[in-house]
Design a protein around this nucleic acid. Structure first.
Lengths: 124, 124
DNA sequence: ATAATATATTCATTATGGCGAATATGTCAT
DNA sequence: ATGACATATTCGCCATAATGAATATATTAT
C-alpha cells in the first residue's frame, strides 16, 4: 500500500467524532471499556465496533484483565496529531481523562451507598 | 459545532488519497489546477470537486489569474499534520513539488519541440 | 460575436461506513 | 454445570461521500 494510502487510512480512521472521543478518553493512560461506555454514552456494540476499528488500524492495544479489557494508545504521537488538528481549526481540544471520576455504573468506587464492588479496577 | 466535531471534520476532509495528493502537490507554494490535473492523473471534474471540498473546509484559498486559478494552502500547519501522521504510520511522506518539472500538457515550458506557450505561468 | 480553453457545478449512480438489533464468546461466581 | 456479566462479532439498513457524465461559467483570442 502506498504511503499516501496509509496516511489517508489513518486520518480517515480517526476522523470521526466517536473515535476521537475514545482516543481522548483513553489519552496517555489505560481505560477499560465500561469506563468508555459510561463516559461517552455510546451503546456497547457501537463502542466495541469503534474499538475494533481502532485496533485493526494499529492505533489501540487491548489487554485482558479478567472479564475486563483495557485499551491503551499504541503511540502517544496520535494525541499530538489531534492537538495539531485542533490547533489548525482554532478550537480547544477537550481533556477527557476518565480515570479520576468516572461515573461508570460498574466502577463506583467511593461513590453512592450500597455500591462497593471494585470491578473495573486493575487487580494484579 | 463542538470542537471535537470540528476536528473530526478536518481529519475526515483530508483523510482521502486524492485530497492528500492535492495538498502535498500544492505544498508551501501555489499551484494551478492544470498542474494538479496532469500530476495526479485525476479527471478534471473530480479534481475540481475535491478542490471545492477543500475550499469549503477552509483549507485552500483560490486566486484567479486570467483563465487559470491558483490554489494555495491556507495554513502551512496542515502539512505538519500530514508529516505527523506519516510519522505515526512509519512511512515516508512523498514530496510532491509540482513547479519544477510539471508535465502538464499545457505548461510545457522548455519541453518537447513545437511547444512554446507560457500558459499556466503566473503573468502579472 | 464566436470559438477555444480553464475551471466549476449539477445530477445520478455507486461505494463506504456508521448504526442498531441480535447473537456469540470468554470469564468469573456459585 | 449454570448463570451472570463484559465484551466481541455478525448482519442488514441507511446516510454520507466519491465517482462519472454532462453541462455551465468565465476568460482570452480571433
Amino acid at each position: 500500500m502506498s504511503s499516501i494510502k496509509q496516511v489517508a487510512a489513518l486520518l480517515q480512521t480517526i476522523g470521526q467524532e466517536s473515535r476521537l472521543q475514545i482516543l481522548l478518553a483513553i489519552g496517555e493512560g489505560e481505560t477499560c471499556v465500561c469506563h468508555l461506555e459510561a463516559m461517552l454514552g455510546l451503546r456497547q456494540a457501537t463502542l466495541s465496533q469503534h474499538l475494533m476499528a481502532l485496533r485493526e488500524a494499529g492505533l489501540l492495544e487491548a489487554r485482558r484483565q479478567g472479564r475486563f479489557i483495557h485499551y491503551r494508545l499504541n503511540d502517544p504521537r496520535l494525541l499530538a496529531i489531534l492537538r495539531q488538528a485542533a490547533d489548525v481549526q482554532g478550537v480547544p481540544l477537550p481533556e477527557l481523562s476518565p480515570s479520576p471520576d468516572c461515573n461508570c455504573p460498574n466502577c463506583s468506587k467511593e461513590k453512592g451507598p450500597g455500591n462497593n464492588s471494585s470491578r473495573c479496577e486493575v487487580r494484579s
